[in-house]
C-alpha cells in the first residue's frame, strides 16, 4: 500500500473533508502561505483559497471562539493551535463555552468542531513548547479527546472527528509528523471511542498513547527476543474511553503497564489503572499495575535531560521486563 507521513495523512484527510463538505474550513495561525508551523496545511491555501484556509492574528482564545461560533451556526470548523502549550490561552472558550453549551442549553445546541494541536517533547523546544496536556480535557465532560499514534490512525481519526457533532480536541505529536505508514487513498473513518490492540502478546499488557505506542511496539520487539510478549493497546480516543479491550487484555496477561508522555501526577494513566483495578480484571492480576509516565517536571531544554524526562524505548523495556519477571 501507499506510504504517507503522519503530516501528509492529516493533510489528505483535511483535503478530503473540505472537498466533500463546504461547511468544513480551517482557521489558525500561519496555516496559509506558511503551511502551518509543522507543514500540515501546506498547499491547502492554493487549493481552497483564503476564505476556507483562514490565517489569524495571534489570538488563540478567539481562534477557539470563532470555531465555536461558526459551529453553532451551521459550519464545521477545524481550528489549529500552533503548539499544544498555547491551548492554555483557549481554556475558557473550550472548557466553559464549547464543552458546556449543549448541556447548559438543554441539549438543543451542538458544537461540531475540531481543535487540532501538536503536543509532546523531543524537539528541544523546552518547557513552553513541549506540553502534553490531554488530561486537562479528558476531565471536561462535553469534550472528546483523540490522540492518533501513526499515519493511518491520524487520517481515519481526523475524518471521524470532523464528522462528529461534538467539540473534539485532536492531539497530534510533533515527533510523529515525519513518520511514515500505509495510508489508503480513499477517505475512511476510525470511529471515536474504539480502543485497538496494536500488537498481541500474552505476558504484559502495555496501554500507551500517541508517540508512546510506537515506543511500546519497539520495546515489544526487543523483549520478544527474550521470550517476553507484550500486548500493546492504544486507546486512540481518551474520551470517550473504550475500556473493554484494555480489561480483556489484562484478564489475559495478568500484568499491566500504562505508558504516557504527560507527567504522572494526575495523568491519564491513573484513570486506566483505576479502570483495571475496579474491573473483573482485578482478579486476574498477578502483579501490581504500574505506570510509566513523564517525570513530574517541566520539559528541560538540554537534549540529555529532555530525553530522560519522558518514557523511552529502554525505560519501557525495563519496566515491562520487571513486571514479566516479577521483579517489581
Amino acid at each position: 500500500m501507499r506510504e504517507l507521513t503522519y503530516a501528509e495523512a492529516l493533510r489528505e484527510g483535511l483535503r478530503q473533508a473540505m472537498t466533500a463538505d463546504s461547511r468544513v474550513f480551517m482557521i489558525g495561525e500561519d496555516i496559509g502561505v506558511y503551511g502551518g508551523a509543522f507543514g500540515v496545511s501546506a498547499g491547502l491555501l492554493q487549493e481552497f483559497g483564503a476564505e476556507r484556509i483562514i490565517d489569524t492574528p495571534i489570538s488563540e482564545a478567539t481562534i477557539a471562539g470563532a470555531c465555536i461560533g461558526a459551529a453553532l451556526t451551521g459550519m464545521r470548523p477545524v481550528g489549529e493551535i500552533q503548539f499544544m502549550d498555547f491551548v492554555t490561552l483557549t481554556m475558557e472558550q473550550m472548557v466553559l463555552q464549547a464543552a458546556k453549551v449543549r448541556f447548559m442549553f438543554g441539549g438543543k445546541a451542538s458544537v461540531p468542531m475540531v481543535l487540532r494541536m501538536p503536543g509532546g517533547s523531543g524537539t528541544g523546544a523546552a518547557a513552553q513548547h513541549s506540553e502534553s496536556l490531554e488530561n486537562w480535557f479528558v476531565h471536561v465532560p462535553g469534550l472528546k479527546v483523540v490522540m492518533p499514534s501513526n499515519a493511518y490512525e491520524a487520517k481515519g481519526l481526523l475524518l471521524a472527528a470532523i464528522d462528529d457533532d461534538n467539540p473534539v480536541i485532536f492531539i497530534e505529536h510533533k515527533l510523529l509528523y515525519k513518520t511514515k505508514g500505509d495510508v489508503p487513498e480513499e477517505p475512511y473513518r476510525i470511529p471515536l471511542g474504539q480502543t485497538r490492540v496494536a500488537r498481541e502478546g500474552q505476558h504484559v499488557t502495555v496501554v500507551a498513547t500517541s508517540v508512546m505506542v510506537s515506543r511500546a511496539l519497539a520495546a515489544a520487539e526487543e523483549l520478544a527476543k527474550e521470550g517476553i510478549e507484550l500486548e500493546v493497546v492504544d486507546p486512540r480516543t481518551l474520551s470517550p474511553l473504550d475500556d473493554a479491550p484494555i480489561i480483556a487484555s489484562v484478564k489475559k496477561t495478568g500484568r499491566a503497564l500504562v505508558v504516557h508522555e504527560a507527567v504522572q501526577m494526575g495523568g491519564f494513566g491513573g484513570e486506566i489503572v483505576a479502570r483495571i483495578a475496579s474491573s473483573e480484571a482485578f482478579d486476574y492480576l498477578e502483579a501490581p499495575v504500574r505506570r510509566l509516565a513523564g517525570l513530574d517536571i517541566p520539559i528541560p531544554y538540554n537534549r540529555e535531560l529532555e530525553y530522560h524526562a519522558v518514557p523511552q524505548v529502554e525505560s519501557i523495556v525495563r519496566e515491562a521486563r520487571k513486571l514479566a519477571r516479577g521483579e517489581y
Binding site: 476564505e51 476556507r52 482564545a61 471562539g65 465555536i68 461560533g69 475558557e92 472558550q93
Partner: peptide, 19 residues
C-alpha cells in the same frame, strides 16, 4: 462568563459570510 460570548461573535460572523 464575562466576555465569554465575545469571541464567538467572530465565528458567527465568519459563518454568515461563508454562507
Amino acid at each position: 462568563i464575562v466576555a465569554g460570548g465575545v469571541p464567538l461573535a467572530v465565528g458567527v460572523g465568519l459563518s454568515i459570510k461563508m454562507r
